[in-house]
Amino acid sequence: MEILTLLKSNKTLRTATIVVLILLILATLPIYTPDYTIVLLSSILMYVVLTVSWVLFSGPTGYISLAPAAFIGVGIYSTAILGDSMPFPVVVLVSGIVTIFIALLVGALTLRLKGIYFTIFTFGLLELIRHLVLFLELHLTGTRGRFVIAQDFITVYFYMLIILAVLLLVTFLINRSKYGLALRSIGQNEEAASHIGVNVTTVKIATFVISAFFMGAAGAVMATRWTYIDPGIAFNMFFSFMPVMMALFGGMAHLYGPIIGSVVFTYLEEFLLTKLPELYMMLFGAIFIVAILYLPDGLLGVIQKGWAALMRKVRKDNLGGNHANS
C-alpha cells in the first residue's frame, strides 16, 4: 500500500516504474513470441535508439543534423574491421568510442555553423566519409565491402534492448539536469545563453558526442545482422532521414513522441515493404509530407489534443449528470 501511495505522489518514480516494466516485458518476449516478431522488434528498437539519440541533441537545440547515417556507418565499419578480434560486447563498446572521436572532430568543426548551413554540412560529411572509405578500400585494401561475423537474432535483440535502456537512462538524466535546461536555452537563443554563462560550445559538442555514441553502438550491433557490408550499405542516407522523419512524425515535445513515432513508422515501413514494395517509397514520401503539413506537433500532439478533448467531455458529462440529479 505504501508503495502505491508513493507511486501516486511521485511522477518521476511512476514513469520510471512503467519504463522498467516495459523493458522487463520486452526482455522476456523471446521466450514466448515467434522469431520473426523478435527480428521485427530488433528493427523497431534500432530505430527507437536512433530517433531518441537524434532528439537528445537536435530536439532542444533545433540543430537539424543529417549526420546519423555517418555515425551508424562508422559503427558498422568498426565492427566489420574489429571482427572477432575481441569479445562482442567490447566490439560494440569500441565501435561506440570510435564514433565518439569522429563526432568530437565533427562537432568541434561544425557547431559554429547555424541553421541550414549546419544541416548541409552534416549532409556533406556523410558523403565525404562514404567516398573516402570507398577510395581507401579500392586503393589500400583492394576490396569492395567486407563480411561481418554474424550474431544470432536473439543476441542482436538483447544488445539493442540494453543500448536502449542505457540511452533512456542517459536521456532522462540529461533532461533532468541543469544541462537539459542549458540545451533548451541554446535552442531558444544561443547568444543570450552564452551571455548568462552557458558555455554553449561545450554543451553542444558534449551532447552531440553522447548522441553519436549511441548511434555508433546501434550501428555496430546491426552490422552483425547484415553479414555483408560495403560503403553504400553502411553509409546510407536513409539512416539520416529516418530518425528525423520519425521524430517529427512522433512529436518532440516529450520523450514519448520519438518512441511512438519510431514504433509506428518502423511498423509502417515493414508493412509497406512486404505488401506494396513497388509503391513503398512513394507512400512513405506522401505520409511524411502529410505529417509535416498537418501534424505540427506530431502524433503526440494529436494524442494530447484528443486526450484533452476527452477529458473536457467527461467533465462536462459529469457536470450535466449532477445537474440532472439535483
Partner: peptide
C-alpha cells in the same frame, strides 16, 4: 522562417521519394 526552412527541406525529401518512385515505376 527558420522553422519553414527546416520543414520545407524535409518536405522536399518526401517529394524526392515520391518523384523517384514514380519514375522507377
Amino acid at each position: 522562417i527558420e522553422i519553414f526552412e527546416s520543414k520545407s527541406m524535409l518536405v522536399a525529401f518526401g517529394l524526392m521519394y515520391i518523384i523517384q518512385n514514380i519514375a522507377i515505376l
